[in-house]
Design a protein around this nucleic acid. Structure first.
Lengths: 197, 197
DNA sequence: TCAGCGAATTTAACACCGTTAACTCATACA
DNA sequence: TGTATGAGTTAACGGTGTTAAATTCGCTGA
């Protein structure tokens, strides 16, 4: 983030500078190292300026989290356009999930309050999260048009397996090679998708 | 924890008082609210005293985490004595896992660095965690005596499903009734165990 | 009884944190 | 020229983990 200098910057640029810097520090030093003052330093402003863009650190984290869910949603919709087969769709979306967590672990962490990332605002009532949930639920529904309750359970199951494996992979990453975890992930998700029909 | 007064206390009592207080604050206010000074206040000592028992906050959290894994191991071994059928064993252990997370969520959180709990010391090289892993792996092995690699994968799978569901249940607890999540958990774990034979 | 020692405990400090009030300062307009 | 507006800063408050220094206390030996 040292690329950012303090010359001519629009409000929008400063705002996204804050977000970028926060993510950058989180990626390099972990979320517990992200502080308002450190962000302010990086964008070459004093700390109170950050509060002109975000009411609190919590709100900033929430924004980054929402951004993560939005990005995920876009990827999901890309898959929807690419494939028509529900089986293929759900499997590819599972892979998207994996790739996302692998490429942007710090975002994944703040989305689920993992590893020092801690956002007070409840995630379950975020519309962005609801959107990604709806996409996956709809795919499952097109698979087997059962009751809303059944779909909910199946989605909960899919989500749990995917998220659980991703989390444990992160946890054990220095002990168990990622390639191996990825293989298990692929196999398990494929089996889950197969098991739906 | 208001029961603790400062009269005659052995070193051991003070030490466990620190641990108890930390867990108590975490349970009531969340891990991000746990501070050395607050613990010291509760046990009626000044902050530096805590450092006579624990080198750092990190070490204190690590101790609580290890305690959690030890407790889990004891429960697992209780199940081993109670049942001989591997299928029954694995299923019952799955239920233990659920019950533990439900009854002592703050311990579960610190074990996996969830929701503001953050312990720097790596969990994957804790012998206590290894012990519980070994128990479950052994059960799976007695189920289907395959290669070490296969067992590892199956254990990873079991752990992911269980942990994933528990985590998401915590995350969605205000949105999705726990009883419902528990039902899905039981069904899924039963199905997993069945699928092993 | 009292001096002195050693251990137990506290106070004070450092460098950080999130957050807010008060202040400075330059520009734009009357 | 005077003043109001807005951007940006400094300074402060109460909190954090942590450590060094100071203090208090109980006990031993004279």
């Amino acid at each position: 983030m040292e690329a950012i200098e303090r010359k001519p910057r629009s409000r929008e640029q400063t705002r996204s500078g804050i977000v970028l810097t926060a993510k950058d520090i989180a990626r390099r030093e972990g979320w517990q190292a992200v502080s308002i003052r450190k962000i302010a330093d990086a964008i070459e402003y004093s700390a109170p300026i950050v509060y002109e863009y975000f009411d609190s650190k919590d709100v900033l984290l929430d924004e980054i989290r929402s951004e993560g869910f939005r990005h995920l949603r876009q990827e999901y919709e890309r898959i929807l356009k690419l494939y028509r087969d529900p089986e293929k769709r759900l499997y590819e979306i599972s892979l998207i999930q994996w790739e996302f967590a692998r490429r942007q672990p710090e975002i994944y962490q703040v989305m689920y309050n993992l590893d020092g990332a801690y956002c007070t605002l409840p995630v379950y009532q975020s519309s962005e999260m609801q959107a990604v949930s709806d996409i996956v639920s709809d795919i499952i529904f097109s698979f087997i048009p059962k009751s809303k309750e059944s779909i909910r359970k199946l989605y909960f199951e899919w989500w749990s397996i995917s998220h659980g494996m991703i989390m444990l992979t992160m946890l054990l990453k220095d002990q168990q090679p990622i390639e191996q975890s990825e293989q298990v992930y692929r196999d398990t998700m494929r089996r889950f998708v197969r098991g739906l029909r």
